[in-house]
């Protein structure tokens, strides 16, 4: 095959592929081909087979959504405690603050008075044996 006919064949093959993608008829496209039928024609069926075999494949919608979420987390970073508290509704924020205060009070009360209780029990235990 000479270089000019090779270039012509390449152009024809390209035109056939584009024509098929545009919904054209293979025989009609081959009829319009400028290069000799023997050069381009030997690939026509193959191009058509490729055209029908290679089709776009859609991802699962769940995958698209979960990846979107993953990327969002990556971009925005995991929100910290204060950021999360700020994003909470007012009622929930107040309840959380009250719970926090109550928890702290309970903790300090136990620290202050809780340490005496075992001693008392121990003292009672010592006093009661006969």
């Amino acid at each position: 095959m000479t270089s000019s006919s090779k270039i012509q064949t390449q152009a024809t093959l390209d035109a056939v592929a584009s024509g098929l993608q545009a919904g054209g008829d293979l025989d009609e496209l081959m009829g319009r081909a400028e290069s000799p039928a023997s050069d381009a024609g030997e690939f026509a069926g193959l191009i058509q087979a490729l055209q029908s075999a290679l089709r776009p494949v859609e991802p699962r919608p769940e995958f698209v959504e979960s990846l979107r979420t993953e990327l969002a987390d990556l971009i925005e970073g995991q929100p910290g405690l204060i950021k999360r508290a700020r994003q909470m509704p007012l009622r929930i924020s107040l309840a959380a603050a009250l719970a926090l205060v109550a928890g702290c009070l309970l903790f300090f009360m136990r620290r202050l008075f809780g340490s005496d209780a075992p001693q008392e029990i121990q003292e009672e235990a010592v006093a009661t044996p006969l």
């Binding site: 039928a37 030997e42 690939f43 069926g45 193959l46």
Partner: peptide, 14 residues
Amino acid sequence: SSAAADQQRLEGTE
């Protein structure tokens, strides 16, 4: 198989 089919097509057009 593809080559054979193309050959058939080619012979048909010629």
